[in-house]
């Protein structure tokens, strides 16, 4: 085992400082008394109070949450189906087009995805609102979900499923009791990825949202353009805290699931 050289230690220290100091500053100054974001004037939680009374932000937060939950659920279902098609379905007519359509949205600039979906919604005369954002987010997120799930499925031992069928399971039963528990960590992390992508998205939501539905990123973006405000810092702190809790819980849960699964597989042998 090689020891960390001084170069390694320095680069890790600076690297992680670079990654985390901006967020620490953001969080610390959300508790600042002063309206000026860069001058410290004492501890206060008043910006959180103001945030809680800001109807526009609360409405936007509610819309964002609704969109994220619905679109990531749609994306998970469709993405898992697409992963099955990619890994299991063998050859069928238009397979190349299918896999192209799965991978293309991952590299497509958001401005183009947003523009093209908006033009579609206008062409078919669909009113823009929560529904259109959900459709847009569901579409690009399903591609991410299918990549995550299909990479897990590629290592999946198909004989387990065959064994279940031999023992009298129907195809659906075998899926429910064998396949799903094994791929579930990937499905859950796919859902989480879709959820955060949707929470975070500004560009595509700006194109596809109508006047009736404003999401939090759209709201943040328009107020940030006018300058920095402690209210946005408070909001950012809440989001960072929620994400950190979510990610850490999810990673602990998935680690446990993997450990349990390994144990089950060993018992089965």
């Amino acid at each position: 085992m090689r020891k960390l050289s001084w170069f390694n230690v320095v680069s890790l220290t600076f690297g992680f400082a670079f990654l985390y100091i901006p967020m620490v500053i953001l969080v610390v100054y959300s508790f600042n008394e002063s309206k000026l974001v860069t001058v410290w004037a004492g501890f206060s939680t008043k910006w959180y109070g103001e945030l809680m009374q800001n109807e526009a932000f609360l409405d936007a937060a509610w819309v964002t949450l609704k969109v994220a939950v619905i679109s990531s659920t749609i994306a998970t279902v469709l993405g898992t189906m697409a992963a099955f098609v990619l890994v299991r379905s063998g050859r069928f007519f238009g397979r190349t087009l299918f896999s192209g359509m799965i991978y293309a949205p991952l590299v497509m600039p958001e401005v183009i995805t947003g523009l093209s979906l908006l033009l579609l919604f206008i062409a078919i005369g669909m009113d823009r609102g929560v529904m259109t954002i959900v459709l847009a987010h569901g579409t690009f997120s399903m591609c991410y979900v299918s990549v995550v799930v299909s990479s897990r499925m590629a290592t999946f031992d198909e004989s387990l499923e065959e064994a279940a069928m031999d023992l009298g399971c129907t195809g659906w039963d075998a899926f429910k009791s064998v396949t799903l528990p094994i791929i579930s960590p990937a499905v859950i992390s796919g859902w989480l990825l879709a959820f955060t992508l949707s929470l975070d998205d500004l560009v595509i939501a700006s194109f596809t949202a109508g006047p009736s539905a404003t999401t939090l990123p759209i709201k943040i973006f328009s107020s940030v353009r006018l300058g920095v405000s402690p209210e946005i810092n408070a909001l950012s702190t809440i989001i960072i805290a929620l994400v950190a809790i979510g990610v850490i819980t999810a990673s602990i849960a998935s680690k446990r699931a993997i450990v349990r699964q390994r144990r089950d597989e060993q018992v089965a042998r």
């Binding site: 901006p22 953001l26 990123p217 973006f221 920095v228 950012s236 994400v243």
Partner: peptide, 21 residues
């Protein structure tokens, strides 16, 4: 984990943080 964690936090907020800096 420490490298991935910021990736999950809002992109917009991470860009915003630099305005104040």
């Amino acid at each position: 984990m420490l490298v991935i964690l910021p990736f999950w936090t809002s992109f917009l907020i991470r860009v915003y943080a630099w305005i104040g800096i």
